[in-house]
Design a protein around this nucleic acid. Structure first.
Length: 328
DNA sequence: AAGGAGGCCAACCGCCGCGGA
DNA sequence: GTCCGCGGCGGTTGGCCTCCT
C-alpha cells in the first residue's frame, strides 16, 4: 500500500528528558488504550514525541512494577549468569528479572558488573575473558565441522550450567512459580489470589503498583510547591489469560482531562490493576562457562533462600520454562 | 569552597525482523 | 514477491550528580 504515515515527523519532535506532564499524559493514554500501537500515541495524545520515545519511556520508566536501583545480590548473580549464557541479550535477561528493564540491566552491567567481574577475574587469576562478559576463549580458526561441534559443546555446557543454576532455585516449575509469585504480590493486596495461568508462553507478570506514577508525581511536586501527599500503593494483581492490557475497569480519570492534575491520588490507586508483558526468548547462544566466577556464583548456596525476602520478587527460571523458550 | 574527574543513567540512534499491503 | 512501516533490541551518548583534590 502507498506508504503509511511515518511513525513520527522528524520536524517538531521533542527530544530530551520527559517532563512529569508528558509522563502523565502518556500514562493516562496507556491506561485507557493499553500499551501498543505506539504510532498512534503521539497523534492521539498531542505529545510532541516520536512513537519510539513514547514506547521507551513507558517500558523503561513508567511501566508498572519496575524496581529501580539497588540491585540485590541475587539479581546480580542472575544477571551475571544469564549474561554468560545468553550474551548481551538484555531483553532476554530482563525477561527473567521482571522488575528490571533491559535498559537498567544493561546499564548496571556496563557500570557495575563489568568492573566487578574484571576485578574478580584478576583476583581469581584465571580470566582470559575480557570486560564485555564471560566470553568463549576460543579464538583459533576452526573448520566448519569443528566449529559446529564446538558450538554444540558450548551449548551443552551452557545447558548444564543453567541446570545447575536453576536447581538452586526452589520453585520447581513454571506454574508453581507463577502461582507463588502471584500470591506474593497479592500479599500486598486485599484481593483474592488467582490460580496460575494455563499457558506455556513466557508471560512475564509485573507487580502492579502506582509507584512509578508516584515517582513522577513526586518530581512534579518538587516543581510545584504544593503539599506533597502520600501516594497509596495499593496493589492488585489478577492475571488474565490475555494479559498485556491494563484493566478497563480502572478509573484513572478515564474521561476527564483532569488526569493532568497530579494530586488526585484516588485515581492513582489501583491504576495498574493488571499488566503483564509478553516476551518470547529464543536464545540459543551459549557461551563457555565460568571458572572463578562460576565458583562465586554457585558457592552462594543461600541463593535459593533469597526469594523469601519480599524485596526479591524475581522470576525463578524453571527448567520447563527454559526448555519451552528453546534454551535447551 | 571551587573546580575537575569520573560515574551513573535516561534517552537517543541505528539496525533488524516481522507483518501488512 | 516486494516494499515499507512498526516494534524491538543493543550500543552509545550527553547531561546531571557525586566524589575527590
Amino acid at each position: 500500500m502507498m506508504g503509511r504515515p511515518p511513525c513520527c515527523d522528524k520536524i517538531g519532535v521533542k527530544k530530551g528528558p520527559w517532563t512529569p506532564e508528558e509522563d502523565i499524559i502518556l500514562v493516562s493514554y496507556i491506561q485507557e488504550h493499553g500499551p501498543g500501537n505506539w504510532r498512534s500515541v503521539p497523534t492521539n495524545t498531542g505529545l510532541l514525541r516520536c512513537s519510539k520515545s513514547c514506547r521507551l519511556r513507558w517500558t523503561n520508566y513508567l511501566r508498572p512494577g519496575i524496581k529501580r536501583g539497588n540491585f540485590t545480590d541475587h539479581e546480580e548473580k542472575m544477571i551475571i549468569h544469564l549474561q554468560a549464557l545468553l550474551g548481551n541479550r538484555w531483553a532476554a535477561i530482563a525477561s527473567y528479572l521482571p522488575q528490571r528493564t533491559d535498559n537498567d540491566i544493561k546499564n548496571y552491567w556496563n557500570t557495575h558488573l563489568k568492573k566487578k567481574l574484571r576485578k574478580m577475574q584478576s583476583l581469581g587469576g584465571g580470566g582470559g575473558s575480557e570486560g564485555s562478559g564471560v566470553q568463549s576463549q576460543s579464538n583459533t580458526t576452526l573448520s566448519k565441522g569443528q566449529w559446529e561441534r564446538r558450538l554444540q559443546t558450548d551449548i551443552h555446557t551452557a545447558k548444564k550450567a543453567l541446570c545447575e543454576a536453576l536447581s538452586l532455585e526452589k520453585k520447581p516449575n513454571l506454574e508453581e512459580y507463577y502461582y507463588n509469585n502471584n500470591l506474593k504480590i497479592l500479599q500486598e493486596s486485599p484481593t483474592a489470589p488467582t490460580p496460575p495461568p494455563q499457558t506455556t508462553t513466557t508471560t512475564t507478570t509485573y507487580a502492579s503498583s502506582a509507584e512509578n506514577i508516584a515517582r513522577l508525581l513526586e518530581n512534579w511536586m518538587k516543581k510545584s510547591p504544593t503539599k506533597s501527599s502520600e501516594i497509596t500503593t495499593t496493589t492488585q494483581v489478577c492475571m488474565s489469560e490475555e494479559g498485556s492490557q491494563i484493566s478497563a475497569t480502572n478509573n484513572y480519570n478515564n474521561n476527564s482531562p483532569d488526569h493532568q492534575k497530579p494530586n488526585n491520588n484516588n485515581n492513582l490507586e489501583g491504576f495498574f490493576n493488571n499488566y503483564s508483558s509478553h516476551s518470547t526468548t529464543n536464545d540459543q547462544e551459549a557461551v563457555v562457562p565460568l571458572t572463578f566466577l562460576e565458583k562465586w556464583l554457585f558457592d552462594d548456596a543461600a541463593l535459593a533462600h533469597v526469594h523469601d525476602d519480599d524485596d526479591h520478587q524475581l522470576i525463578s527460571v524453571s527448567l520447563d520454562e527454559a526448555q519451552s523458550e528453546g534454551l535447551f
